[in-house]
C-alpha cells in the first residue's frame, strides 16, 4: 500500500505544479481580455480621469508582474481578494458608511459553488447509473437494434450544442407539456424535493450531454473483455450472459469506466456555464459569465482557478481509482 501512497503524493505534487502553470495562463489570458473593469463599469461616463481614478483605487495601474505575484501570494494564503464591483460599490459610500461589510470573493463564490455542486450531483446521480445500465445492456445485446438505437440517440445528443438540447427540453417538457419549470429558481432554504424539482431540467440536459461517452466506454470495455479466454471459459461452463457480464467482465472493465466517469464529473462541474445561463440556475457559472462581462478580474481568476482545481483533483481521483482497481498497478514489480 505504501507505493500507492507514494503515487498519490507524487500526483498531488504534480497537480500543484500544474495549478501553478494554470494560474500563470489564467492571469495572462484574463489580462489579455480587451477593455478593462473601469471602462466596463463606467460605460458612457468613462472619461479618462474617471477611468484613471478607478484604476488607481483598484491597483490596476501596477505592472502585470507585480499584480500576478500579489494575487498569487493572496491565493496561497487563501485570500482571493475583493471583487472589483464590490470594492467599487462600497467606494460610492465615501467616508461615512458601509465600509465594514464588503463580501470577499470567497464569500461570494462559496454559496454559488455549492448550488453548482447540487446540480452536478443531481446530473451525476442520473447519468452515471443510466449510462452504466445502457452500456451493459448494449454490450449484452451488441449489434442488435437496441444497441444501434441507443448508440445513435446518445451520439446525436452529445453532438448537439448544450443550449440547443436545453431549449429542446424546455420546448417539450416546459412549454408544450408544462411538467417541469424552465426557470431553476432555487434558493438556500428550499425543501430538498422542491430543489430537486427545479434542478431536474438542467440536470437532464447535462445528462444528455455526458451519457454517450460513459455509455460507449462501458460498452466498449466490456465487449473488449468478452473475447478473453476466461470469459469463454465462463460461457463454456454454462454461466448466463448477464452473469458473465456483471460478475466476470465488469470488474475487470472498471478502470477505463471509472476514468471516463471522473472526466465527465469534472465536465459536469466546470461545463455548466452555458446550462446555468439558459436555466437561470444561480450557480457559479452565472457568476462567472456576469464577471467576465464586467471584467471583474478577481472573480474571473478565482473561478478559473477553482475549475482547474476541480479538473485536476478529479483526474487525480480517476488515476488513483484505476490503480486501486487494477492489482497489477497496485503491486508493481
Amino acid at each position: 500500500m505504501n507505493s500507492v501512497l507514494g503515487i498519490i503524493l507524487q500526483r498531488l505534487g504534480l497537480g500543484l505544479l500544474t495549478l501553478l502553470v494554470v494560474s500563470i495562463l489564467i492571469f495572462a489570458s484574463v489580462n489579455a481580455l480587451p477593455g478593462d473593469f473601469a471602462q466596463a463599469i463606467l460605460g458612457q461616463g468613462a472619461t479618462p480621469e474617471a477611468v484613471a481614478a478607478i484604476r488607481e483605487d483598484l491597483g490596476l495601474n501596477k505592472p502585470p508582474i507585480t499584480r500576478y505575484f500579489d494575487w498569487l501570494a493572496g491565493v496561497i494564503t487563501g485570500d482571493f481578494g475583493t471583487s472589483f464591483a464590490q470594492a467599487n460599490m462600497s467606494s460610492f459610500a465615501g467616508a461615512d458608511t458601509g465600509k465594514g461589510g464588503i463580501a470577499s470573493v470567497a464569500d461570494q463564490m462559496w454559496p454559488r459553488f455549492k448550488t453548482t455542486l447540487f446540480l452536478a450531483g443531481t446530473a451525476a446521480a442520473i447519468s452515471i447509473p443510466l449510462s452504466l445500465l445502457l452500456g451493459i445492456l448494449a454490450a449484452l445485446y451488441r449489434n442488435s437494434a437496441y444497441d444501434r438505437f441507443i448508440n445513435v440517440s446518445t451520439l446525436s445528443a452529445i453532438s448537439s450544442p448544450e443550449f440547443f438540447l436545453a431549449y429542446i427540453l424546455i420546448l417539450f417538457l416546459s412549454f408544450l407539456n408544462p411538467i417541469l419549470p424552465s426557470l431553476s429558481n432555487i434558493s438556500e432554504g428550499m425543501p430538498f424535493l422542491d430543489k430537486l424539482y427545479y434542478t431536474l431540467l438542467p440536470a437532464l440536459t447535462l445528462t444528455l450531454a455526458v451519457t454517450a461517452q460513459m455509455m460507449r466506454m462501458t460498452r466498449a470495455a466490456i465487449i473488449n473483455l468478452l473475447a478473453s479466454p476466461y470469459i469463454e471459459m465462463a460461457r463454456l461452463k454454462g454461466v448466463s450472459p448477464m452473469r458473465v457480464i456483471l460478475i466476470h467482465a465488469l470488474p475487470n472493465a472498471l478502470a477505463p469506466i471509472i476514468n471516463v466517469i471522473a472526466l465527465n464529473l469534472a465536465y459536469l462541474i466546470t461545463g455548466v456555464v452555458v446550462i446555468e445561463v439558459v436555466f437561470v440556475y444561480p450557480g457559479i457559472g452565472q457568476l462567472f459569465v456576469d464577471s467576465v462581462k464586467n471584467r471583474d478580474i478577481p472573480i474571473v481568476q478565482a473561478c478559473c482557478l477553482l475549475f482547474a482545481t476541480v479538473y485536476i483533483l478529479l483526474n487525480l481521483t480517476a488515476d488513483i481509482m484505476s490503480i486501486l482497481s487494477n492489482p497489477r498497478l497496485r503491486h508493481p514489480k
Partner: peptide, 21 residues
C-alpha cells in the same frame, strides 16, 4: 413579490413564455 435576476435575454423570454414569471 418575487423578483428573479435574469440577465440573459433568451432566458427571460423563455421564463415569460412558459409562465414562470
Amino acid at each position: 413579490v418575487e423578483a428573479i435576476a435574469i440577465n440573459d435575454s433568451n432566458a427571460r423570454q423563455t421564463a415569460m413564455m412558459t409562465g414562470q414569471v
